[in-house]
């Protein structure tokens, strides 16, 4: 019984560890490498392009990430459709950003669909995350 508990605790421990944002980024890197053998690591410059490039989004309006999150990641933004305020993306002014992997995954999934009308690839997600975390 005791042994089972220890094993269970260990499993829980490892899966918790696997849930950190850094671990998620490593996982994205592995996926990116698998999809493209020439992958050399994530690029903040490519991430910047992803962040600022404009697309006809899900609502039929031309938008980029910056439409709601603004050009300055250290500033708060606003959902341009609902008016709801958005806290800054930059961890330098909003330390809680990119600490909850569940949230990170959820918003990458949703916002890629809103702006690009498709899911982001592993490389795109890693690139834009690197850009947002370092600005």
């Amino acid at each position: 019984m005791k042994k089972t508990m220890i094993v269970l605790a260990l499993i829980a421990g490892t899966s918790l560890y696997g849930k950190t944002v850094d671990a998620y980024i490593n996982q994205l890197a592995a996926e990116a490498k698998q999809q493209n053998s020439a992958f050399q690591g994530f690029s903040a410059q490519r991430g910047k392009d992803i962040y600022f490039s404009k697309h006809i989004g899900k609502r039929g309006k031309e938008v980029s990430c910056a439409s709601c999150h603004t050009d300055n990641l250290r500033q708060g933004g606003e959902n341009i459709f609902t008016g709801k305020k958005i806290k800054p993306l930059s961890p330098s002014v909003n330390p809680k950003r990119f600490t909850d992997v569940k949230k990170v995954k959820k918003w990458l999934r949703r916002n890629f669909k809103d702006v690009y009308k498709r899911e982001g690839t592993a490389q795109e997600k890693g690139d834009v995350l690197l850009f947002m975390r370092s600005n």
Binding site: K58, R59, F81, K102, K106, R109, R110, N111, D114
Partner: peptide, 8 residues
């Protein structure tokens, strides 16, 4: 309402 609001 034309936005992705999917949940876990």
């Amino acid at each position: 309402f034309k936005t992705d609001a999917t949940l876990e």
